[in-house]
Simulated assay, not measured.
Amino acid sequence: MITRNTIGSPVAALRYGPYGSFGVTGPSSRPPYGQGSLGIEVADDSTSLNPPSEKADFGNEVDFFGDSVLALKQVGFRVFQTNENVGYGGAENMPNIRFEIDPNLSALPADNYSTMVWVPDAAPVTNRWSPFIDATTTGYWYLTGNETSCTQAAECSFQELKASLDDGGAKPTIYTASIGKGRDYMWIGAVDGLRINREIYDFEPNGVRTRRA
C-alpha cells in the first residue's frame, strides 16, 4: 500500500485466487499467472470526508522513480470483475493504473506534481478473469492537475496524453506506479499481470514476481 494515498480503511493485499466464480471452468477460472493476485476492496460511503468513499493505491515508490513518461510504450492488466461491481457503479466501475509524475512543462515550471490516470472501458467478461486489457489502446487517460488539455472532463488517448506533455523542454518523469481504486464506487475484485513496458508483474501471496513480456 502507498500509505499517503490511502483514504479510509480499504484492502489492497496480495492473496490466493480468486478462483471461480461457481460454474466457471478453464483458464479464465484461475489467476492468469501463478496462484495469486492483488485483491482490492474499497467502500463507497465509509468516511466522514467529502466524498465519503475510500481510496486505495498499491504500487512501487522506488523502482520507477526518474523513469521517462514518454518511454512508456506498453501498459495494462488483467482483472477479475464481478456482476456485483457492475451493479454498484456501472460497467466501467473498474480499478485504475496511476503514475505519479513530474510534468516538467515549460509553461508551468513550479508545477512538479500530477497523476496520470488510466480509466478502463468495461471489462469484457465478468465473474472470471479477463484477457489482457491494453491501457495504450482502450479506455482513456487524464492528468489530475489539469496541466494540459487532458483532464477528467476532456478525456485523452494514451498517445494524446504523452504528446501533451512533450512540449520541447525538460521531459516528464515518473515518481511512482500503482494500481488504485476510488474515490467513487464500492468495488471488490482483483488484478493480476500488470504490464509496464517489457515487464509483467505477477502478484502472488508471498510477493510480486517480475516476468518478461
Rank of each mutant, 00 (worst) to 15 (best):
D63R: 02
S21I: 04
L105P: 05
D44P: 14
N85T: 02
T25H: 08
G76C: 02
Y185T: 06
N83D: 10
T176H: 07
P18M: 00
S48F: 06
N5P: 07
I101W: 00
A71Y: 09
N206S: 14
S68I: 03
P32G: 02
R128V: 06
S178D: 11
S149G: 12
F22L: 12
D202Y: 13
W118Q: 01
T115F: 02
A43K: 14
G180E: 00
T6Y: 09
G23V: 00
T144C: 02
D166K: 01
A190E: 05
D102T: 14
K171N: 15
A170I: 09
G26V: 00
S48P: 13
E155P: 15
A190G: 10
F65N: 08
Y201L: 15
V42C: 05
T3I: 15
K73P: 08
A110F: 10
S53M: 02
V208P: 11
T126P: 09
A177G: 04
V79Y: 02
A123H: 03
E54C: 05
S149F: 06
C150Q: 05
P124S: 04
D167H: 00
S46F: 10
Y142R: 01
S178K: 01
E160K: 14
E147K: 09
A71Q: 11
D166C: 05
G180K: 00
A13V: 15
Q152W: 09
D45L: 09
N85M: 05
Y19N: 13
G207N: 06
S114T: 08
P31M: 07
